[in-house]
Amino acid sequence: MSLFDRISQPGPEWRRIEHALSGPTGLGTSAARVPRARRPPEDGPEESDGSSPGAARGSVRVPPLHCPDAVRDDPALGEEVNNRLVDWAEEMGLFQGRLERLRSHQFGRLFMLAHPDCDDPDRLLVAARCGLAEWAVDDHWVDEGEDTTPELLGHRLALTHAVVDPVRLPARYLAQFEQVVQQEPVLRAFRSCLDHLAGIASPTQVARLRHELAVMFVGYSQEAHWRSSGRTPAVWEYLLHRYENAFFPCMVLIDPIGGYELPAHEFADARVRRTYLYAATANVLLNDLYSMSKEDPTDTNLPNLIAAEEHCSLQEAVDRAAQIHDELMYTIEAEAALLSAAGSPQLRRFLAGLWAWMGGSKEWHATSARYNDSPSPEEKDAT
């Protein structure tokens, strides 16, 4: 049964999606059934059927977040995708010396959870390759590579964009660029993942990913500026940054992985774009909350910035960051209901996929060794 079919015949997990994305039904229906978005109480996020349980993150506790649960969990499928993904990473030269730690992070499970309308490991691997290439920029060039000097990031991203949107150089110079690509695993990975995507997606869908990657690279460059200058951004500026450096490139693959295409006029509709951007931003703020315990206390994230700007405790800042996340989620619910009532079947399916993606991502963040307290295989060997 496809994800779209499950909306019409929902189980317990789908009641919230049915509620948020239901359109007009019944003979003589004259108006769309649009649910009222529930607002969080003023003293903090509410607990509801669609909220995640609170989680302890070091010395602070992440409150329950207003976010759906994963629609499906197929451990065998997730393991299959994960093993193939690690093999591909090794082929590209990514995460050398860290492959077992990469395996323990279970990125393949993330994409199994996030795309419940796809049971094909080959298609899920397409999404996983793209996602891992994006994460590799951060893991190789920002946090853990041989040289993470922030002043180098702009140059590296320019090279990456020249791979993502293939550069056109005179032949005598193109050969020099190709030498650079062959020596850099991240560049090879982006070329490979886009080639695989082109095998299942339309040119329009591939172009959508190229655009979202370019936006993400702008966000990476902004963060590199903060690191190189030692400047702490204001909260509003950081939220703008997260509006650019979010899960857009991952979420833009919802329809090609599902085997359909959202019509261009609906993808470009400002209201659809707003909802899609809010979803990606909300989910990356969830990432901020779940990744805190694994980051340096001086790292730039929303709770740290709120605590510094508002002179409050870190726990209070975490609670306020959770409220911002939830506010976005309530808006997504309300706007998705309106859009699905008036849109095409493909739009309704895309919006359901967006909701499912956030639920799958939440489940992965809550369970992955990347963000939870468990030593990596390399760390175990060292002890």
Rank of each mutant, 00 (worst) to 15 (best):
E261S: 02
D255H: 03
N304R: 00
S202C: 08
C118T: 15
A334W: 12
L99V: 01
G23Y: 10
M358N: 13
E363W: 04
W355M: 06
R38M: 13
L277T: 13
A20H: 08
E244G: 01
A322C: 07
D119G: 02
L174G: 15
R16N: 01
R210E: 15
V163H: 04
P377G: 01
L277Q: 08
L239P: 10
A133Q: 05
H325P: 04
A127D: 11
V218R: 05
L347P: 06
F95N: 03
S229Q: 12
R208T: 14
R38Q: 14
M1Q: 11
E42S: 00
G50E: 14
W357R: 05
R188A: 12
S22W: 01
E333I: 10
Q182S: 11
E333D: 13
G145Y: 01
S48G: 09
G360F: 07
T160G: 11
Q315A: 13
R84C: 13
D49I: 15
N283F: 08
D43K: 07
L110N: 01
E237F: 02
Y278A: 14
Q182V: 12
D319W: 00
S291T: 07
A234Q: 14
L3Y: 05
G219W: 03
S368I: 15
L197D: 04
D73I: 05
H161L: 13
V186M: 02
